Simulated assay, not measured.
Amino acid sequence: MTPDLILPYDGVLPVFASRPVWCGRGSTVIGTASLGAQAWLGDDSVIRSDGQVITAGERFWLGARSTVHIATESLPTHIGDRVTVGRNAVVHACTVGSDVVIEDDAIILDGATVGDGVLIEAGATIFPRSTLEGGFAYGGNPAKRLRPVTLAEIAERAERLREAADESATGPDPVPPEVEESVFVARTARLSGRIALGAGATVLFSCELAAEVGPIVVGADTNIQDNTVIRTRGEGVVIGRDTTIGHNVRMNDCRIGARSLIGIGSVLAPGTVVADDVMLAGGSTTDPGQLLEGGHLWGGRPARILGALDPKKRAMMAHIVEGYCRHGREYRALQDAEG
């Protein structure tokens, strides 16, 4: 069995030590990724290695709608043996040891190091450059050490995650919409309803955009990254131009301004208004109707102002937008060539 979608990056295809045990619908592996024997990839799981390498050891288990990615120009992702990742989790530009369990909705951010024999509890956020000593359970946002754990408990929690996985198909295979040449919509993305994508917009792998009531409007050169889900049940969603929506974000019926960044795994409640020039840290949430004023870094659950959006952060956000415009052009060419 092979992933639903395999694409090269910079001419390099992923490497599998042996044929995966299971690859769910919409599972995607891209670029310079190397997976050990007995890999298991759930529905809509994404491993995207487009700039740095990703390595995963033997018996790597990746749950439905989970994402493994790198920091394009700076940090790889390395994962040890017997690592189990639950559903809707993100492992991003970090190092993870062996015999680790990462439960549902957990997030590991750039530069973090996770030791052997670690349990990361559901919904936890591992902040950038954190070090998690082996042999302990961690939870919270930011994640804190909770208690010691044994390898027996690690194995039990891993088995529990695997048994809870629901890999049943949820609908027909996605059919990419007709879009102009500057727009990229991944073949594994699912779009339905009234959706407008501005010139240069990028909708990446296993995203779901469902305009069930109001429309979804995405501005020019805005990128929506892997496994993000956007739904409308009221007035709709409008996202300004030159904005980044990170991996595994959840939102409905909200407004997001131009030149903003919504961090990995964030959840935006209905009625949220994000002004222009806002950076929302990974793993954050908002309250219904909350206003995030422009010119600030926001973060937390619920989000609060953490500091000013200084020139360095603004430049970083603009650089991400430029990079994803380039990625979109590259992936459209690869997808078109695949047919």
Results as ranks from 00 to 15, higher is better:
Thr2Tyr: 13
Ile6His: 04
Gly11Met: 00
Phe16Pro: 15
Gly24Val: 12
Arg25His: 13
Ser27Arg: 07
Ser27Leu: 09
Ile30Gly: 02
Gly31Ile: 02
Ala39His: 05
Asp43Pro: 10
Ile47Pro: 14
Ile47Arg: 13
Arg48Trp: 00
Ser49Leu: 07
Ile54Lys: 12
Glu58Cys: 06
Thr67Ala: 12
Thr77His: 10
Thr77Gly: 06
Arg82Leu: 11
Gly86Ile: 04
Arg87Gly: 05
Ala89His: 06
Ala93Glu: 02
Thr95Gly: 00
Val96Tyr: 14
Gly97Lys: 04
Val101Ser: 05
Ile102Asp: 02
Ile102Gln: 06
Ala106Phe: 06
Val118Lys: 01
Gly123Leu: 03
Ile126Asp: 02
Leu132Gln: 11
Glu133Arg: 14
Gly134Cys: 10
Gly139Ile: 02
Pro142Phe: 08
Lys144Asn: 12
Ala152Tyr: 08
Glu156Ile: 09
Glu159Val: 05
Arg160Ile: 07
Leu161Arg: 02
Val175Glu: 00
Pro177His: 08
Pro177Ser: 05
Glu178Cys: 09
Arg190Tyr: 14
Gly193Ala: 00
Arg194Phe: 03
Ala196Cys: 07
Val203Met: 07
Ser206Ala: 15
Glu212Tyr: 05
Gly219Arg: 02
Gly219Ile: 08
Gly219His: 12
Ala220Tyr: 12
Asp221Ser: 15
Asn223Trp: 03
Asp226Gln: 07
Arg231Ala: 06
Arg233Tyr: 09
Glu235Leu: 11
Thr243Gly: 14
Thr244Cys: 12
Val249Asp: 05
Val249Leu: 09
Gly257Met: 00
Leu261Gln: 08
Ile264His: 13
Ser266Arg: 01
Ala269Arg: 12
Thr272Gln: 08
Val273Pro: 12
Val274Tyr: 07
Asp277Arg: 01
Leu297Met: 14
Arg301Val: 14
Met316Asp: 07
Ala318Gly: 11
Val321Asp: 00
Glu322Gln: 13
Tyr324Asn: 07
Arg326Phe: 08
His327Met: 10
Arg329Asp: 03
Glu330Ile: 10
Gln335Cys: 10
Asp336Thr: 07
